[in-house]
Amino acid sequence: MANLQAPPVFAGEDYGFWSSEMMTYLNAYDLWDTIEKGYTPPKWELPVDTPVNHIKKLKEEKTKNFKALTLLHSAVSNTLFPKIVSAKSAKEACDTLKEEFQGSKRTKAIRVLHLRRQFSNLEMKESEEVKDYISKLIEIVNQMKIFGGVFTDKEIIERLLICLPEKFDSKIAAIEESRDLATLTVTELIGSLQAHEQRLMKRI
């Protein structure tokens, strides 16, 4: 643990992104399982005849819990630290943050609905580059996934083809005529649109 990279710090915003980053971070150090399983210390002294391997396992669980809890303490801002300071386990600390900042199922459903509305209304501006528009679109999709929303490549592709400005009309027509949209991937479509955009820029 001596050379641990500093964890991502949560200050009260974008909980979904932070929690995903934190899960990856703890997994990298083999500590995520203590968040999933939780940790409850023994309530009494172990019998003297307790097998050595069982004692070793309990010590490992205790160590992993407090390593994860220590990292969580350093992964929240000073203003949020009081919310988890009394937690006895890493799971308890995580659950406390999740309950407050991710909210109930109803709250998440409302959030997904709001994001879907953003997704449906996001139009590409005439002066906007494909990569910039795609970045905004994918960010909305990723947020929806964090809150439990389900999105397919087909939906993203359809949204892209609908919202592109007129300068892409010929490219869209060519794609629709030559490709089966059911097998077209988002990556392939983006590459094709960017290539078309570069050709248009060379003509200017």
Rank of each mutant, 00 (worst) to 15 (best):
E36K: 13
P82W: 06
T24F: 04
L137M: 13
W32S: 05
V85C: 07
K145H: 07
P8L: 12
S89E: 08
V9T: 08
K56M: 15
T107Y: 09
N142L: 12
E123R: 13
L69M: 05
A195I: 00
Q198K: 15
F66G: 00
W18H: 07
A6P: 11
L193D: 09
G16L: 10
E36M: 09
A11K: 14
I162Q: 12
A109G: 06
K88Y: 00
M23K: 15
N3C: 04
P42I: 03
K154C: 06
L161C: 01
A2I: 15
T187I: 11
T34F: 02
E13S: 12
R179C: 06
D95T: 15
K56F: 12
H73R: 15
S170F: 11
G148K: 06
K83W: 01
A28V: 00
E61K: 13
E100G: 07
G149Q: 12
E197C: 09
F17D: 08
A195K: 03
V130W: 03
E60Q: 12
V85F: 07
R179L: 00
P165Y: 13
P8I: 08
D153C: 03
A28Y: 03
F81I: 08
E158D: 14
L31Y: 12
R111T: 14
I157W: 00
N65R: 04
T152G: 02
P165M: 15
W44R: 15
P47I: 02
L113I: 04
I55C: 10
D30H: 12
H73Q: 11
F119Q: 04
I140V: 13
K43M: 10
Q102I: 06
F151R: 11
E176S: 05
G148F: 07
L181T: 01
E139V: 01
L160D: 00
N53L: 12
K154I: 11
N53K: 13
K88S: 06
E36Y: 04
E177D: 03
A87E: 06
I140D: 04
K98M: 11
R179W: 00
P82M: 04
A93H: 03
G12M: 02
A87P: 03
G38A: 09
P82T: 02
P165H: 11
I162C: 06
E13T: 13
A174F: 06
L161A: 01
R159G: 00
D180K: 08
E197G: 09
L164E: 05
S178L: 07
A173R: 14
